[in-house]
């Protein structure tokens, strides 16, 4: 379980995240939604120790993320941000094998290689595994990074907008994959998503943020209502139930 208590983040006088207290349950997919500038990515960065916390604590399985050694945490929790640029020339396999670094510190064992193969297979990257990252399309590169964090084999996997750069087919494929990882491997996956319909269809739990605070949280059925959408996005959104799923229609 991820326990967030009274977390605040401010840059000078600007408060980005204010007094967020939240418990993210073990197993399953939790999506964080909300308008731009709501503090979603900042919250995710603080949970994953990428950004310092101004006040409050975050505990992952009882480990305080600011006090636990980084290499211990790297075996429990992994994070993938949206913009990943690499200056060195790496192949997909090289990148995925970096996911084993917390365990092997650069000396790969046979088991590490097997894990890397598994992650490459899981993402369907076998044919691309010897290609260099700079020769891939944005979506392929995104999948390679996802393979890396899955290869890290942590209980908690955090993604900041994993659907960026992906077309419809690959976006659906990615969400199905994450669902599968949560269901079959027992992972706890936390996502920042912009497309609320994906959040509605694939999450077990949705956290809605606005102006640096959590305004609503609960199962998709509770969040996917016109009333909640108005509160979160300040927008009139029609919610329809289509084939048992709540879909919002906000395009016009």
């Amino acid at each position: 379980m991820i326990e967030i208590s009274n977390v605040r983040k401010s840059y000078g006088d600007t408060i980005v995240v204010q007094n967020v207290s939240l418990q993210i349950p073990r197993r399953g997919i939790t999506s964080i939604i909300g308008p731009n500038g709501a503090g979603k990515s900042t919250l995710l960065s603080m949970i994953s120790r990428l950004a310092p916390i101004t006040a409050g604590t975050v505990k992952v399985d009882g480990l305080d993320v600011t006090k636990t050694p980084s290499d211990v945490l790297a075996k429990r929790l992994s994070i993938l941000r949206q913009d990943n640029r690499v200056t060195s020339r790496l192949t997909v396999r090289d990148l995925v094998e970096f996911g084993r670094y917390p365990y092997s510190k650069g000396r790969l064992t046979a088991e590490d290689r097997a894990q890397a193969d598994k992650a490459i297979g899981f993402l369907g990257l076998e044919a691309l595994s010897d290609r260099f990252l700079d020769e891939l399309s944005g979506g392929q590169r995104q999948r390679a990074y996802v393979a890396m964090v899955l290869c890290q084999d942590t209980d908690y996997v955090l993604f900041d907008e994993p659907l960026n750069n992906l077309d419809m087919k690959h976006a659906v494929g990615m969400m199905k994959l994450l669902r599968q990882a949560a269901d079959t491997m027992g992972k706890t996956i936390v996502l920042v998503l912009h497309d609320i319909n994906f959040a509605s269809c694939y999450s077990d739990f949705i956290v809605a943020m606005r102006d640096g605070a959590v305004v609503r949280h609960g199962p998709p059925a509770e969040i996917m209502t016109s009333e909640a959408m108005r509160e979160i996005y300040d927008m009139d959104v029609e919610i329809r139930e289509i084939q048992g799923r709540r879909i919002s229609i906000y395009y016009t």
Binding site: L50, A74, N84, Y101
Partner: peptide
């Protein structure tokens, strides 16, 4: 970010 994620 990637190196912090990998525990460095």
């Amino acid at each position: 970010e990637t190196s912090i994620n990998l525990g460095v």
